[in-house]
Design a protein around this nucleic acid. Sequence first.
DNA 1: CAAACCGACGACGTC
DNA 2: GACGTCGTCGGTTTGA
Length: 908
Amino acid sequence: MTRLVLIDGSSYLFRAYHALPKLSNDLGEPTGALFGVVNMLRGHLKEQPDLLAFVVDASGPTFRDDLYAEYKANRPPMPEDLRAQVEPMMQIVEALGIPVLRVSGVEADDVIGTLALQAAEQGIEVTISTGDKDFAQLVRPGVRLVNTMSGSVLDSDAAVEAKFGVKAAQIVDYLALMGDSVDNVPGVDKCGPKTAAKWLGQYGDLDTVMARADDIGGKIGENLRAALDRLPLSRQLVTIKTDVELGQGPQDLARREPQRDELIALYSRYGFNQALRELTGEGPAGKPTATRPAAMDERPDPAMAVKGQYHCVVDLDTFNVWLDRLAKADAFAFDCETDALDAMQANLVGLSFAIECGEAIYIPLQHRYPGAPTQLAAETVLGALKPLLENPAIGKIGQHGKYDLHVLRRHGIDVQGYRDDSMLASFVWHSAGLRHDMDTLAKRFLGYDTIKFEDVCGKGARQISFADVDLEQATAYAAEDADITLRLNQVFKRKLEGEPGLEKVYRDIEMPLVEVLTRMEANGVLIDAEELRRQTRDLSKRGLQVQEQAYAVAGRKFNLDSTKQLQALLYDELGLPVLVKTPKGQPSTNEDALEAIADQHELPRLILEHRSMAKLRSTYTEKLPEMINTDTGRVHTSYNQAGAATGRLSSTDPNLQNIPIRTEDGRRIRTAFIAPEGRRIVACDYSQIELRIMAHLSEDPGLMAAFESGQDVHRATAAEVFGVPLEQVDSGQRRAAKAINFGLMYGMGAFTLAQQLGIKRGEAQDYIALYFRRYPGVQRFMEGARMQAHQYGYVETVFGRRLHLMEINSRRHAQRAGAERAAINAPMQGSAADIIKLAMRSVHDWLIPHADKAMMIMQVHDELVFEVDTDFVDTLLPEVKQRMQAAVKLRVPLVVDAGVGVNWDEAH
DNA sequence: CAAACCGACGACGTC
DNA sequence: GACGTCGTCGGTTTGA
């Protein structure tokens, strides 16, 4: 069957302009909107339609202006940097060989409408590509609508009804009732999508609605009656003409031969590298970048994959030669070999260094297997290396260097000049979707197969210590580490030089943080083990009581910790209804599920009670005392700087970023995070930082004003959404507003919000609609994030960190929807992470000379925790607050709240 | 042949 | 939305 694609050029250009960041090429010419349009066009061309046309508005008035002088009177003039992209767009369209239609006296919509119906009558399959919902009125068999930016498709009456709540044939009436403030089409006051759909559902069409206007009560009925005489005009304005005299038909719209040279020139000028590659046949073409993020990485230089020359240094003369070379080097790569994974208790077994790619040394210090050769004394080697390692002028390069910094620190060396880290460079280069360990990076960026730790030491129970590895193997493994680190660093240095934004994130945010985290981890936190043991006893006792009750109620014993047994008991034996399923489709026994059936049986409540106590005990009160380091008497978490796709830190062994706070029993655990005698715990946290970032990024005046004036945002939101004065907001309204604020930040839809608030889906939908009406900037921002994600495969933080969304163009709906939600949340979560990282460095610098009086001990995403001499608290507080608040200048103020106490609970 | 180990899953703690 | 950790469960590997 013949296929025709009609592209609504103006609508795309306009939408791409508002959705995408303000990009420009090397010449400084704006290219953001252009980029969006070109990608959209390439998408359509890939489908190889038989016929297609690019339709744009002609200049000058149209018949609608004659009908209504005020038509589009509210339209602001086209921004200059958008206007500048119109001509290049037309050049590219021409060069692509796409027929262009531009008819004066009517709008592009009317041209498209006319052609669509003509073609449909001829049995041609028509696709209208547009970002404008008004076109839904044209959907019918043979005519479908696609929006390549949002990925949505309206291909049937059912699809239209699902989206708008009215049939395609009712869309015109629907639009007329609502009116359109942008085009200045008058509608019925206070009549939005819901009301319009309701009326049309009830009465069928606009004429009937108007005839029965007197039946509709309330304020909205009055508004309807007041609008009666202008509604016919509105209907005329929103009706797309389908009978324009065109002088040509669908059959005249075959694509011409593209002008290849012209296209190459245009693509290069505007920096559309991917389009260029596709055109010139270099590299794989076809799928969008997002589905193959590795494309531009995977061309390792073959020279990087050759094996290096490695030496084992066991005599003083050779060592001195290398010491001299290291001292004269601008920078070198280094790596520590140890006997344990935990940096806080690992012993140094040997050291390796590399100054030039392809050559490296290993200096064994503590290999202790039978027949091991004599090695240099650790004190001698470390003593000689100390001045170099502590010299900030000599750059140090590592892979996950925080580990090595710990080991050396514990051997009396305070490394300075830690300049590059290939793990962090890789993380900034592409935070998601790949691992950043050396073996993976070497394979991918160098095409090099490294010796694996397991090949040298074995695994599982039979694993031996590195100290037991013979020197030959140890050298091959260890020296390689330093060499590969150096090679990787070279590769990333080149890559990042080509991406100034990413380079800055790496240089200004990540690298300076390494020392801060090392210090903070080394500081550790004091834990009151006795208090936790008391809590363990208490929780065990109460847990046992609940368990007895549960057995009694069930009439038999069972394993309360086994979801499988619970599932059988609740749903099979007791026959309770299955209301929630797990992602794998099993009947769920999670909190929501049990809560939902709690009114039908005693057991669910008991299970929940037992679970919460078991969780607290097994994860916290029992485990934390075990994690106390025997040397320091404190707990030292490990922060993973390259773990979270949004740029956040994560914390392991133990995870100190999920210590309970919400429940009474949970919060008590925080009383065991204590300050020693004479000291206090100080906790400083950013107030509403992600919401403030949303205000900043969206530039929404309402939201910005709420923060500007220092109001309670949730209350302010409630006042706006529910239309009541600030002081009359009740607690329920505030709660709902808070849920909306949170939900939207997580990209939540009406369904999840409804669940969260325990209301109907439709009601939640109304709240969201109302919210967007009050904060239109927020809606624009969210749509923009979604579109940017679709176009580029990533979104960005305030500082330009890229957050890739691997699944954004997935064929699977659930995956794609998840990625779209992530696209909304990631810029806020990621920007918040950037900000606190900068703040940490700033605070760290100030703390250096006060190390004996105060130290930073924890970071929990938006909170920094300190242990401070009691008489130093008043000095520290204002300084830390100030540094946190001044970490970055946003369009809204940053506010930091602080608390002081003898334990973490009190400090809140 | 039992003990140890491993990975997937479901659940739940935080921001 | 982003994480890490726990216990269970079923399957595999290990080692006495």
